[in-house]
Nucleic acid binder design. Structure first.
Lengths: 353, 353
DNA sequence: TTGAAAGCGCTAACAC
DNA sequence: GTGTTAGCGCTTTCAA
């Protein structure tokens, strides 16, 4: 039985290859060939006939069918672990994440791929997600060593990591990272050069990139023969209430310091505003330095002295790499380390020596 | 021929229903029934056997196959038009958008749906996207009247609009909106109450929500019998260079005004910083008011007097509505209008009367 | 230059 | 309780 669909205004019909073939009394193979531009196999006449119908009926391929048949999708997954409370609410409220995702989205779109975001605390769910959608490739943010190993062992699809650190011996990973240690060193060095001697380090963990920044901080201290004491690491806890408590503690804590190096602008800005709202003058009473140079850094007053990184570039490179892998191309540079730059603004006071 | 897959460490195998059935010497229907919890049809013994294999081999359904068979997906599309230059680069750099998308992502994730973002200047591409992925539902942001009509005529899937305005007679639309006019009125009224008489309005267009805010602005002026002149509308142009030029013009323009009502905090903050960097004191030389109460509003100094809206709530409601529609449930409230609230901070000067 | 047909993995109507 | 089977729309091999 032949079944023809007729174009009607106001009614939404999706036409299939088979229907086009039936309408024209030809085979699906031929229609398919025209759709895929394998026109050397098809007569000019047929091509035109088919194209006319395609246009008129606005044929659009069914991705699910295509993917099923080809065992692939046009989807690149962007997966991240929802670190505890921090991102459980709304990961994209962190401008770092949103800029990164935005850059990835845009790059993929330009290349004809689709982005699917997947956020979960549970790595197993992320792994399931990959196979359930048969994602062509995965961009992973914020994974630490063990995660990477598990992922590598469970996922056979191409993967590109962003901001991950893993041991040297497993170099088959692809990672787009940053000179985190260098950045941590540079900003601490700057604080030291400004005459600061009591410098607190603020972070919500000591893993991955944050750990590297911390190591850079310690290295700079060491060079100036300043002893690092455990209490110089101020651990902040994400999550509404916990954060509130931390900030309160911090108010007391800062009394022993002239400067604070916050591992990210995200926290630097929160802390800066909190301290100021509680009577501290910045940078007169306490200097604040950040890391990332996010959108807030320029906007807060005093504007934030920080380490700049190009977040969009991270996303773009990650996409470039993943698409190469998806297309079976070889990747020469597997570990990309982007540079950092010290941005001196107004949140750090120059102490008299 | 039977084909068994064996679980091996380090190798990633995806098992199918058919394979489970073959391994156990039962039918796919039975396996399927167990997977879908239709256990009243299956003996306890079989259930256990199947569940054991599912667990051991980590069965995960193939979405493409499932979607194809069921003629649906678990995807909700979030589509927006890339307004000219503004979002072409990275839409998520606008905190309004990223918070909205983040909230949508989170709500969908909790409900077991997947989000696919689709940004395009071209509405036709958005329409194609819907059918190519057979998206279950669409959340649309930033569409104006004509867009909505076209979408309605071309897309048969459930749709929920965010921040759209359309004429009264087409009430079958679902829209999650805001008291934009009221908000525009309130903030202008506040400026007037502070003694301002020359108030400029700044926006990059005069459509949709921005238009409503503009109408609110005009209404407040009218009430105080202040004449609105065309030149009181300062049109700003997005895009790197154009924006730069606009800001320069604005510097001159502000001479005729004591206050500026910017249609969004996004612009308010940019303008505020620019003016200050060029020697204007805020609010002494010129007062600035915004709209949205985004993350920057609290952070800039002087902090921004603005109209608050709950962006995450918009996203959450949109998801709630779209899922109801997807599930064939009835929607009682089709036009949701969220409230606004005046937030007085420090960017507006109280003039002596 | 064109066509027939098998198959991707899952679902669901129907039969036993 | 369990099994058979036809399809979802597209791709692709092989044959004509």
């Amino acid at each position: 039985m032949q079944f023809f669909k007729f174009k009607q205004s106001g009614v939404c019909i999706v036409i299939t290859i088979k229907e086009i073939a039936d309408m024209l009394g030809i085979s699906t193979t031929t229609v398919n060939n025209v759709i895929h531009g394998k026109t050397n196999q098809v007569s000019q006449k047929t091509i035109e006939k088919v194209q006319k119908v395609i246009e008129e009926y606005e044929y659009v391929p069914n991705m699910n069918a295509r993917n099923l048949a080809q065992n692939k999708s046009k989807i690149i997954g962007f997966a991240m672990k929802a670190k505890s409370e921090k991102y459980e609410k709304n990961a994209l409220k962190d401008t770092f994440i949103s800029e990164l995702v935005g850059a990835v989205e845009k790059s993929l779109r330009i290349s004809g791929y689709f982005l699917m975001i997947y956020i979960s605390e549970d790595l197993k769910q992320i792994i399931n997600y990959v196979s359930t959608w048969n994602v062509d490739g995965l961009i992973l943010f914020g994974m630490i060593g063990d995660d990477c190993i598990l992922l590598k062992s469970k996922v056979s699809k191409p993967m590109v990591f962003i901001d991950s650190y893993f041991s040297e011996e497993v170099m088959e990973y692809i990672n787009v990272g940053l000179k985190d240690l260098q950045g941590g060193y540079d900003i601490t060095r700057y604080l030291l050069d400004c005459g600061h001697r009591r410098i607190g380090f603020v972070a919500d963990n000591c893993l991955g990139a944050d750990k590297e920044r911390f190591l850079g901080y310690k290295q700079a201290l060491r060079e100036q023969e300043i002893a690092y004491r455990d209490k110089d690491f101020f651990l902040i806890t994400p999550g509404e209430k916990e954060l509130e408590k931390c900030l309160k503690d911090l108010l007391e804590y800062t009394k022993g310091y002239t400067a604070l190096f916050c591992v990210s602008d995200y926290y630097a800005v929160i802390i800066m505003n909190y301290l100021r709202d509680h009577g501290k003058r910045i940078p007169e009473d306490i200097s604040i330095a950040g890391f990332d140079d996010n959108a807030y850094a320029r906007i807060v007053r005093p504007s934030l002295t920080t380490i700049h990184q190009d977040v969009s570039q991270k996303g773009e490179i990650a996409v470039e790499k993943i698409l190469k892998l998806v297309n079976g191309e070889d990747i020469e540079e597997r570990i990309i380390i982007l540079p950092t730059e010290l941005i001196v603004r107004q949140s750090v006071k120059m102490l008299k020596k």
